[in-house]
């Protein structure tokens, strides 16, 4: 049985640089309306934005899911490939395979995954090359 009270899913297209941040902005605005504390909200927004950017820059497309329960917010990033061969390497600060295009826009420092991990109360990543990557981040709100 699902124990969440809200569950929203936002599709994120590969290389959709123009609309980068739209999904995270919508999630942030919605949670703000729901009265989430601003410091927690900022952590959620940063983690969500980093995940959304990774979907755009590195994945073949996927979705960002926000689930809210009375006690927590869970953000899930799910994509359809290419997957990450060495997760522990990807989690190191400074490791990045971002394209020139992404770097020109101000991204590609290899800070995203470590930043998500730091901001979330729980962080879980699974990935399979040729299949895809799933990241689940939990935030306590009560």
């Amino acid at each position: 049985m699902a124990d969440y009270i809200i569950r929203d899913s936002y599709p994120v297209q590969t290389a959709a640089y123009e609309s980068a941040g739209d999904a995270s902005a919508r999630i942030k605005r919605k949670l703000k309306q729901l009265g989430i504390d601003s410091a927690i909200l900022r952590r959620i927004a940063v983690a969500s934005y980093e995940a959304e950017l990774n979907l755009i820059i590195h994945s073949h497309g996927g979705e960002l899911i926000m689930e809210m329960t009375p006690k927590s917010i869970v953000l899930i990033s799910k994509d359809v490939g290419p997957g990450i061969a060495d997760i522990s390497q990807a989690l190191k600060e400074g490791y990045s395979t971002a394209s020139e295009e992404a770097r020109d826009l101000g991204f590609g420092a290899g800070m995203g995954l470590p930043n998500m991990k730091r901001n979330a109360d729980s962080f879980d990543i699974t990935s399979e090359v040729g299949v895809g990557t799933t990241i689940q981040m939990g935030f306590q709100i009560a």
């Binding site: 995270s24 902005a25 601003s38 940063v46 101000g106 420092a109 290899g110 800070m111």
Partner: peptide, 28 residues
């Protein structure tokens, strides 16, 4: 990417980058 990792509340950002992503980052 660095701004996202280092900024605190009520901060201000000095930058030479003028694209729309600066505003999106600021919003977050």
């Amino acid at each position: 990417s660095d701004v996202l990792a280092f900024v605190k509340d009520k901060s201000l950002l000095i930058t030479g980058l003028t694209n729309v992503h600066v505003m999106r980052t600021a919003e977050m």
